[in-house]
Write a protein that binds this DNA or RNA. Structure first.
Lengths: 347, 347
DNA sequence: CTGAAAGCGCTAACAC
DNA sequence: GTGTTAGCGCTTTCAG
């Protein structure tokens, strides 16, 4: 039961007529306490509503059981789903979470952020900000000097860095191959913003898959969006104008696919009869687009979970074994979900 | 620059040939330091890459400059947008954020959660979990005994409790009145899950507004969903079956409106010619439904910002003035966004 | 202006 | 089994 004033270990000790050390042993479940002493102490702890200060404990043990997470764009569903996994797994592993959100995706003043986490003695850090532009420039120089493990999400593998990522290239490949297999031939692409690594990977996969199938890929065949529905509103109209004969489009995410649907409806282009569509992300809503959207499901929740498991593993082995843990790279595979927006094309 | 080993104030002191107090004064910008001493210390701080331990500081000052936030359902966009506001405002006010996510919306084992926050000496708590079922039962008994301020989001005002909420009743009223004004008369409702306070408020507003307009409200005129698109898939079909002559529907949130669109399309019901639709939430995507969705915009980001400003105010005045701050209730007003799904009905 | 001593709440290491 | 001593890294108090 929460109480108005904070009780200290001293008060418990004096109330139970033992030393603080004994109280400490009881609350930490150490063996060397006489059963009746233990019981007496426990009774006092209960009665006073005593709860040990994690702060004091962290200070002396040099171990806070707290993880720092740096994120960006929580107002979007992707980062939130990842954070959801992170929070859940952190809790499950008995740690707490200190949250920092970057004001912008491409903010790159990593230093004060990292310091504020280090000042609070976090045991490890998850850098859950996607790789954009040059926002990873500091890795090479600074990561090796950090006193604690740091785990990066969603970025290009790099020697010496621990990373958990989703295979965006493979996702783009699955999407494009699916469209090819269904008989589409003039396949356009609405990409995410190309300063994002993920957007580039998806586009690169689309391009290579077409080329490997012996199809030409022209400049006018793809347009850049910025992940938002409103951006693809413009992008899709441009694509229609500049690439005649379009029979399918691979859209960089499900939000952008939504306005592809809207523009198509407004222009009398029927999906899927006149135009096949494949999205990316697998947001729950995409199953209720009409027609239901074929998409690439990326499990961002699991991404977060994996990152934490791995990070905690790094923390705990580097403590025990005293030797540094080898940086590890984990790549999760996305999945193709076939729905109604990409049926086999009649010959 | 981050450094491998942690530097302590002692090392800085000895390196600069001063006492630790002097170093302390310098890093806290206290006045009583000779300019040249200050400069010498600053130089050493810089050279060694010293950063004070927030932990040790919190311990002695009994003030951690950290806020605890308890949230739930981060995989949904609503809670994330709120957390976004919370994180941003917390940062802006110079605090850090300790994040806890409930495994389920209706989890009500508040006790261990609160204790784990208190153990880390948070200066205040934001309870950002919506009011559902009896998950507020503990307030009356426990809140008055908490040693720190606690701020609740999204719940029914209650004496003695600090709350920031959005006026869901007013939102439901705006939506329903709009449909009435546009000439719709047989207006159905797909509600959120009715153990949610927000869902009940929206429904109550819909019902009262119809009654005040002299229209009957029958049992068969509304169906309960669970906020997800899939739930309203079922709910809307049921509504169509059980309430003939439906000419408009007020849907509890924008996600559920999405499958109303899908079912309508599949059944040849034209929106808006045959059916007017109004949603709730104002998610960015709703502007790209086809036709664009009229909805009630609730600014959840601002909700989070307000909650933090208020909480920090409570913390800082209760410290200075030593007297408890009066609990405050802040109600934010949602806004009607008129788009294309609810045109004036031809007579 | 500066330093010495005390202590925040807890635990590690050692005595008894 | 249990208590004592020391100290995590910092700030407060008070003396000079």
């Amino acid at each position: 039961m929460p109480i108005k004033k904070r009780i200290t270990i001293k008060q418990v000790a004096s109330e139970a007529s033992v030393s603080t050390q004994t109280v400490s042993r009881v609350i930490n479940n150490r063996p060397d306490v006489a059963p009746e002493t233990r019981q007496r102490v426990e009774e006092v702890v209960e009665r006073l509503g005593y709860h040990p200060s994690a702060l004091a404990r962290s200070l002396i043990q040099q171990h806070s059981y707290t993880l720092g997470v740096v994120t960006a764009g929580l107002k979007y569903i992707g980062p939130s789903r990842t954070l959801n996994g992170i929070a859940q797994q952190t809790e499950a592993m008995g740690y707490s979470l200190l949250l920092k959100e970057l004001p912008r995706f491409d903010a790159n003043d990593f230093e004060p952020l990292l310091q504020s986490l280090l000042a609070r003695q976090v045991d490890g850090v998850i850098w859950a900000v996607p790789q954009i532009g040059a926002n990873r420039y500091w890795l090479k120089e600074h990561v090796p000097h950090l006193p604690i493990p740091i785990m990066f999400l969603t970025m290009e593998p790099q020697p010496g860095i621990s990373i958990v990522s989703i295979d965006n290239y493979q996702g783009g490949r699955l999407a494009t191959k699916h469209l090819l297999e269904q008989g589409y031939r003039r396949i356009g692409h609405i990409s995410g913003p190309l300063d994002w690594w993920e957007a580039r990977e998806r586009k690169r996969a689309w391009e290579n898959t077409l080329l490997e199938a012996g199809l030409p890929v022209e400049e006018c065949q793809s347009v850049e969006g910025n992940w938002s529905s409103s951006s693809s509103d413009r992008a899709f109209r441009q694509l229609l104008d500049q690439f005649p004969g379009l029979d399918a489009v691979f859209v960089g995410n499900d939000q952008m696919a939504l306005s592809v649907y809207a523009i198509a409806s407004a222009r009398g282009i029927r999906i899927p009869q006149d135009l096949g569509v494949v999205g990316f992300d697998g947001i729950p809503e995409s199953a209720y687009y009409w027609p239901a959207l074929t998409t690439i499901d990326q499990n961002q929740h699991e991404l977060g979970c994996n990152a934490i498991s791995e990070l905690v593993y790094m923390i705990e082995t580097s403590e025990h074994g005293k030797k540094e843990v080898e940086p590890r790279v984990i790549i999760l595979q996305p999945e193709l979900i076939i729905r109604e927006s990409s049926p086999r094309r009649p010959i």
